[in-house]
Design a protein around this nucleic acid. Structure first.
Lengths: 349, 349
DNA sequence: GCTTTTGTCGGTAACGTACCCGAAAAATAT
DNA sequence: ATATTTTTCGGGTACGTTACCGACAAAAGC
């Protein structure tokens, strides 16, 4: 493995000059620069990352902008663990991870955290884009300062982000359509349940994207399952109970229930309490509450996307882009795992 | 972050002396050694891996002892990819991976490769223990020379290996029992199919361990499914066809077929050709042949264990043990993924 | 008494890269 | 012509660790 020393010897210049063209800094004539570049190409020079990290006094700061972990957003426990795992591995490489946690129901808290992020002037940003307009503003700031940013869990495709880490949301809805069709064939009635304080911006809303995917399956397969839906903005168990009671009163022939996010546990609680345990129920995320109902047989399927792995890969993508300068795939689509009562004991988040 | 320099300053010795006690080499009096060790503890000193790798001229050689990839052992393509992925990442750390590929049906070829491995005098060994006695011999050699070794894909529990990377084989058979019971309830007849040239050594044989797991499910659940079985030692498609024809003639009431390894594709071929596509069929491994029949609906479930990930983790475990000296879990059980027609497009090996 | 061995320790050159500082050379101004 | 600026480059030190070489004493052998 040839290094700068060998390049300098061949080019008949000093190491410092080689170093200058490698980092394309000023102070090298065009002539010698091209001469050195040719030698670099010829030797297929790969800088020694070990030596580089040791010599470089640069410290890298990565900002992480995700919801804080609460009862309602228990999902984010796993990505945070993955982020911490990556942080531990990269600590030796002078990488500091700064988490900025916001309330996924409070736009203001997101805006506030964004301000803190910008004040930090990080070398990379990992962000869960819950609030589209505000995330776009952040992204524009990053683009202006040439700071790479990675989206996790859901995407904003038109932005020139470094990459997206997460599931193909549309496809995961589509998969749920297939599963329902598999278990409860034509023409049983399906209830779609969206539980979220804020349900709008159809283009980028995770929940609505999944619903789209679900519906598109039945359209493409030419199936005539009737689909009814309810958007529940009062996200307490009481609010869910109330809303679902009404739905089942209006539609007693519902055979399957699709919950577009991790709140499927609360829906399961309602179904159990109202003696509807035999209804086919599926939803998202490997959370304690959900697993309990999965084991009881109230929930039939959980769709999961390895959230810990997402957090880990998110940080690693930033690292590869910022530090290693190796190309990263702009899409890092996670597998869509089907977790059932049978295999849930062996699932790894 | 304090380093050797700081330790030396506090102990009032040179860094050379500190280095000697860190690597517990000779040449340090007990008194100063304990003094330095105390300071090391107090400071919670963590050696800088970057600097260590740069300064150390040591090159590490890891031997990988797995079956070569063939039509019959297509499974091993993925672990090899994972191993190569790890090799690429660790190349910067002066780690060389040496694959030694053997024929899983030829004990002699395994013995020959073991000899080559021993000649290399590697710093670590990753081995798929297909031949138990011969693997034990290798392990004894390793123990004698203090060379760590990792088992991949299947385990030999009594040996003091560094760790095992792979599924809980017994549990994956148990899971299959649950799945069969779920789809084809009591008391439908089940056929167990073992396809392998060598079927013995019940204690460590993957196939028989899975069969045990399957049977134990029905025993524990108190189900009365009749189970018949066939061991197919002529592993050609023709041999499989012949054996299964006989089984189905003797037992026309078979409702489910469990194939204990990746040869489920060949079984599917037989079922399709003999017009038995409606029989519930499940087996192992995400291989092209199998996926094709999964999509056709001949195979109902494939059980997979992220073989690429296994190879990757195997090498990484060796690295952590040998180079980083960080503790590694003695068991690294992979998740037991259920792959169906619905989610197979999104599976990542 | 001497030499030789053994036990302790310090000094220091690497490892491959980053980057500061100052010098030489070239270009421009006076 | 000289003085001044600008461009171009090399020397050298640092990063934190490894590991070799040798210094110096005390202990052992003659």
């Amino acid at each position: 493995m040839a290094g700068v020393k060998e390049i300098a010897r061949r080019a008949n210049v000093s190491i410092a000059t080689v170093d200058r063209v490698i980092h394309n800094r000023t102070g090298v004539s065009e002539k010698t620069k091209s001469r050195i570049n040719k030698i670099i190409d010829d030797l297929n020079y790969q800088p020694n990352l070990i030596a580089r990290t040791l010599a470089s006094r640069k410290v890298f700061d990565f900002a992480v902008l995700i919801p804080h972990v609460s009862d309602e957003s228990d999902y984010w426990r796993a990505p945070l663990l993955g982020i911490e795992k990556a942080a531990a591995e990269l600590q030796q490489f002078r990488i500091n991870i700064h988490p900025f946690l916001f309330d996924q129901n409070e736009k203001e808290s997101f805006i506030k955290q964004v301000e803190m992020v910008l004040k930090l002037r990080p070398d990379g940003v990992l962000v869960a884009p819950y609030f589209i307009d505000e995330t776009v503003a952040l992204a524009n700031h990053c683009d202006a300062t040439n700071t790479p940013y990675v989206f996790i869990n859901s995407d904003i495709p038109d932005l020139p982000s470094t990459c997206y880490i997460g599931p193909d949301i549309y496809q995961s809805g589509y998969l749920c359509g297939e599963l329902i069709d598999y278990i409860a064939p034509d023409p049983s009635k399906i209830l779609v349940v969206n539980v979220s304080k804020e349900i709008k911006a159809p283009r980028y809303n995770r929940l609505l994207r999944k619903e789209e995917g679900l519906r598109s399956y039945f359209k493409q397969a030419g199936k005539a399952h009737p689909i009814v839906k309810t958007d529940i903005r009062n996200t307490t168990d009481e609010g869910i109970r109330k809303s679902l009671s009404k739905m089942f009163k209006d539609h007693p022939d519902i055979r399957s229930v699709f919950v577009s996010n991790s709140r499927v546990g609360s829906v399961a609680r309602f179904l159990e309490e109202s003696g509807r345990g035999d209804i086919f129920l599926l939803g998202f995320d490997f959370l304690e509450d959900n697993i309990a109902y999965l084991k009881k047989g109230i929930i039939d399927f959980l769709i999961c996307n390895r959230p810990l792995e997402q957090g880990y890969r998110g940080i690693m993508s930033l690292y590869r882009d910022v530090v290693v300068h190796s190309p990263v795939d702009s899409q890092n689509l996670m597998p869509i795992d089907i977790v059932t009562r049978q295999n849930c004991n062996y699932y790894q988040i």
